[in-house]
């Protein structure tokens, strides 16, 4: 645990993989004019995983690919696409891995059922404690 969060430093510090040089896509660091659409985009960006980083979302990354993905999200939102459609589009490019929110089907089903199952098991286990009336 020693370096728990502190290592963040190193991350921002991500090894400067040579990343070349090029313009940053227009909408990567530029908000949409409509605050509602921007909020939708931001929300989606926090749920998409940066391809070139160690587990950051594209909303929290300086990597060029994250910038490209942010631009893509904003463009599609601006065009009126639903966030869910865009998420699917990204999954169509990089597989389930790119989404921080696993699908509620297949292997993801157990994950989403976990909170309810755990709660039921815990209550069931605790039920015995109250049985005897004082």
């Amino acid at each position: 645990m020693r370096q728990a969060f502190t290592i963040l430093t190193l991350l921002v510090a991500a090894p400067v993989f040579a990343q070349g040089s090029g313009p940053i896509p227009e909408l990567a660091n530029q908000q949409l004019a409509d605050p509602k659409k921007e909020a939708e985009a931001t929300n989606l960006m926090h749920g998409l995983r940066c391809i070139q980083c160690q587990g950051q979302s594209i909303a929290d990354s300086d990597a060029p690919m994250a910038a490209t993905m942010r631009a893509e999200v904003r463009q599609q939102i601006a065009k009126g696409e639903k966030p869910e459609t865009i998420r699917k589009w990204m999954i169509g490019r990089y597989g389930e891995w790119v989404s921080f929110e696993p699908e509620m089907k297949g292997s993801g089903l157990l994950l989403w059922a976990a909170p309810v199952l755990l709660l039921l098991v815990a209550v069931w286990m605790a039920r015995g404690l109250f049985r005897r009336r004082a």
């Binding site: 090029g22 940053i24 896509p25 070139q52 690919m65 490209t68 169509g92 490019r93 990089y94």
Partner: peptide
């Protein structure tokens, strides 16, 4: 330049 085609291809590097 903007890695747009890379994104379309699902390329990561």
């Amino acid at each position: 330049n903007e890695m747009a085609v890379q994104l379309m291809l699902g390329s990561s590097g």
